[in-house]
């Protein structure tokens, strides 16, 4: 039993590290705005379909990690991530029962909220506009949801 838990924790950590690495792996400049938010999707998957939902503190720490890796304001991604995961936790039981296409829409909506919070904090900090491309990744991330859902289930098992 303990061995099973350790094995699951190891796989969970592997998932976390891979998702983080996928957030910073070099991409051509033209492709970068479409880079799926792998870490956010992994946390949302843990909330909606994982063996144990991601907690708020884990979401906050993951956001802080992104802040450090992306070189932005410390706390910006952390704030957006914690709010997004909190909303997901609030509606977790309803979303769990949804079909995959509906879950995809929910994930897209949550990632738009995430990006909206980033946009608000950027504006409050007086950072200049980022063009319209930053609204692209919630769509690409949501499109990946069905496949990532399947992949995560294979890595961590079905629940």
């Amino acid at each position: 039993m303990a061995r099973g838990t350790a094995w699951r924790t190891a796989r969970m950590m592997l998932l976390g590290v891979t998702s983080t690495a996928a957030c910073v792996v070099p991409l051509p400049n033209w492709l970068d705005p479409a880079r799926p938010a792998f870490l956010s999707i992994t946390l949302l998957w843990l909330v909606f379909a994982g063996p144990k939902p991601a907690g708020l503190l884990a979401a906050w720490l993951a956001g802080l990690l992104l802040d450090l890796l992306q070189g932005g304001m410390l706390g910006q991604n952390a704030l957006a991530m914690v709010v997004t995961v909190a909303i997901a936790l609030k509606f977790r039981l309803q979303v769990k029962t949804f079909e995959k296409p509906n879950q995809t829409l929910v994930v897209a909506g949550l990632l738009f909220i995430y990006e909206f919070l980033m946009f608000c904090t950027d504006s409050l900090a007086g950072l200049r506009g980022r063009g319209g491309w930053q609204w692209l990744y919630p769509v690409t991330s949501a499109l990946l949801w069905p496949w990532l859902d399947e992949l995560h289930k294979r890595v961590l098992g079905r629940h």
Partner: peptide, 17 residues
């Protein structure tokens, strides 16, 4: 918990930026 973490994030952002 959300309120607490949002406040901490806000403080971090102000202190950093």
């Amino acid at each position: 918990r959300l309120f607490m973490l949002v406040i901490v994030s806000g403080i971090l952002m102000i202190a950093d930026h």
